[in-house]
Design a protein around this nucleic acid. Structure first.
Lengths: 229, 229
DNA sequence: ATGCAGTGTATTGTATACAATTTGGCGTTC
DNA sequence: GAACGCCAAATTGTATACAATACACTGCAT
């Protein structure tokens, strides 16, 4: 490649992937405007390709597109945040159960690697990467369950969860639930579907309770809150 | 409008909607090729808009896009067909339960109207329209449950179900489950969530058992089946 | 006949040009 | 000084031109 401009050229899929990872790792904050010209310069492609990528992300609710106003990283409302976790509560426990029946040794190895890397990232202070690995753990379980459709739903929900966490996570919950994943891994290794299902259910409940979903997001405090302080 | 060519002009959303309805009503059969130039002529817009519409439909798995080979109406495999109904079984019963708690008189009226219209369409011999109304009944219940995220999932699954039915429905099952919807409506009217949940679970089981998911789809019969008749 | 290479057409992929719309700033007026 | 209207810059929406690819068909050799 002779020109730095298109050092990162790619299809709309790869560009959507890069953006999704950046969002997942909290390097692109909710609300960030995504201007077509800028993005196309960065990746060295035309706006056409970028538009396709943005539309895909919009369909996954990772970005919001308003007609004639462009795209920005989505800012889920409290209501959406609750819905995302309610949907996860509906899908993931049963999926973990199915996964327990089909899991192979290489699956277990991969899951274990996720946990190790997540731990390493945490110690290295790379919170974004730790967060993404934590999400990948859930996605990996869905993949093991071998149900493409549900896998797709969970992938989308995990990505959106990352946005929810960016907006509503209260840092005083420091534990960051790494042993929850450990326990899940053990249940899977034991092929104990019922146990995996219960653990997943509890884990998701822990996750929501580590969020502050009782008031408006930091940036969008209600008028009342602002005026009557 | 002075020109018939763009009598149906619209945005990519409306075009995707038109295509989706046509697919839902089995006026576009699985496998039908969707050529950008043709579609753009029909709706009087440029290929740009049509491409966006097709990509949206592809994301919903109603059409398949292969690079450099274009888009065609999706042909779900048996595996996908099973997955779609497994996902529905995971989501819809609980959703029906939630709907029972929130349903309003006007919701009930609308549901009832769906049933009536479905019946009328059946008697008029318009099977496609009946099928779409039947799907709308399920979607309406999800809407009543007031969970946008799950509503979106169910909408997508119902649309895909229509493709599955086009491919795998065995006509000898004539009943077409109209009283199942009646029973559901009664349970909702009674605000009996548990009953609604059970009915929905059973209804979905009836649906899958009216399909023939044990062999290859009609068009793709295995070589063995063809040769050893 | 069968298989294969080459060629032309049909179709999709991408970039770019232009139109439409929004946004922010500037000056005017009250 | 605040409100309003207007203009310029930035940005998105759509169409179109051109490049790249796949597909069907013909003719040829075996």
């Amino acid at each position: 490649m002779d020109d730095a401009a298109h050092a990162l050229a790619g299809t709309s899929e790869t560009i959507a992937g890069r953006l999704a990872i950046a969002i997942h790792e909290h390097r692109l904050a909710p609300g960030t405007k995504l201007i077509e010209d800028e993005v196309s310069d960065i990746f060295g492609v035309s706006r056409t390709v970028v538009r396709a990528a943005l539309q895909k992300l919009a369909h996954d609710r990772l970005v919001t597109i308003q007609r004639n106003r462009g795209a920005s990283v989505a800012e889920p409302t409290i209501r959406e945040a609750r819905e995302v976790f309610e949907a996860r509560a509906l899908l993931e426990p049963r999926t973990a159960n199915s996964a327990a029946m089909r899991v192979t040794p290489s699956d277990l190895a991969r899951l274990n690697q996720h946990i190790v890397e997540e731990h390493a990232a945490l110690h290295a202070g790379d919170l974004g990467r730790a967060l993404r690995l934590s999400g990948l753990f859930h996605i990996e379980i869905a993949r093991i369950a071998d149900q493409d459709t549900i896998y797709g739903f969970i992938t989308q929900l995990v990505a959106r969860s990352s946005l929810v966490i960016a907006l509503y996570w209260q840092r005083r919950t420091a534990l960051c639930e790494s042993h929850a994943h450990h326990a899940l891994l053990r249940a899977l290794a034991d092929r104990d579907g019922a146990q995996a299902e219960d653990l997943m259910k509890g884990h998701l409940l822990d996750l929501v309770s580590s969020l502050d979903l009782r008031q408006k997001p930091p940036g969008q405090k209600s008028l009342r809150d602002v005026l009557l302080t």
